[in-house]
Design a protein around this nucleic acid. Sequence first.
DNA 1: TTATTAGATGAGAATTATTACTATCTTGTC
DNA 2: GACAAGATAGTAATAATTCTCATCTAATAA
Lengths: 161, 161
Amino acid sequence: MHPLRRVRIQPDMDFEKRLEWFRNECAAAGLPCTHQREVLYRALVEAKDHPSPEMLYERVKRKIPSISLGTVYRNIKIFLDHGLIGEVSLHHGSLRLEANNEPHHHLVCRHCRKMFDLPAAGVHAIRLRRALPEGFQVERFVVEAHGLCQECAAPKKRRSN
Amino acid sequence: MHPLRRVRIQPDMDFEKRLEWFRNECAAAGLPCTHQREVLYRALVEAKDHPSPEMLYERVKRKIPSISLGTVYRNIKIFLDHGLIGEVSLHHGSLRLEANNEPHHHLVCRHCRKMFDLPAAGVHAIRLRRALPEGFQVERFVVEAHGLCQECAAPKKRRSN
DNA sequence: TTATTAGATGAGAATTATTACTATCTTGTC
DNA sequence: GACAAGATAGTAATAATTCTCATCTAATAA
């Protein structure tokens, strides 16, 4: 259902190709492919960091000085909803805390953002260290399983949702 | 250096034991062990969900009606700094985005919150599914390596930091 | 126990992040 | 080119977090 799952973009795909893909996705989703959306999408594709909405706004404003921050937020949400881009890690809107210090991982619902603990037992150690950039001192690995919880996955029959 | 690494709290440790540990940690860190801090810590230990500062504030207010939200935030930050509690997933303050749809993971500096990509190649598949709660539909696993990047790990000799 | 003092607290202002509202403007279609 | 659905800019409103500062309290020494 999500485009990223439907069509795999190749890493070496140049921007023109990606843009074409983007336009097709918009058309398929019934979304007008506005100039603002194209420029925003381009900024996302070209970003090597993991920009925040504010950072994107700054970049896009160089191309479209009149663009509004609201447009950036609105379209980011739309892109995410349609799987055109991804969130680096699910953002809960506010800080979330725990005193549980047993090794464990998390299950996060991408819709309601509810979180569940998962005991670390059974999750095998991750061998990643050799891939790490110079000087980064890893203290722990956290595994997050992203998906839909039972409630959010349920077809919204009866009641509203 | 961090207490959670220095002393391992046992899962079956009752609250009195934890509180004693907490007091020792405070003393060791030169932190006055105020009533507010104890009540806040207790609320964290007893929480089964992954509360936000606001949620904690609501709970703690039942015990100390005069407590202020600022105190909750201030102490949460202190507890985190001293490793007395943990963040469920590193909170970036704002949404962070990426158009990179190649399978990859992230390296996050717990100090400056900078993020680096890690190719997924080499990270072996995680076998976790049998541990999942009923009905949760996992779409992807995200591995985050938390630690300190080179800059933040560097001893703050010369220059300020 | 009291005096001392570093550091904590509560209250509210200030900032930052995000969403909502609305009059106008564009895209896609006919 | 005209139309309708939906998008945009600008601004107001809300949520999340931090800051400021005048008191107050925990920890220590007398």
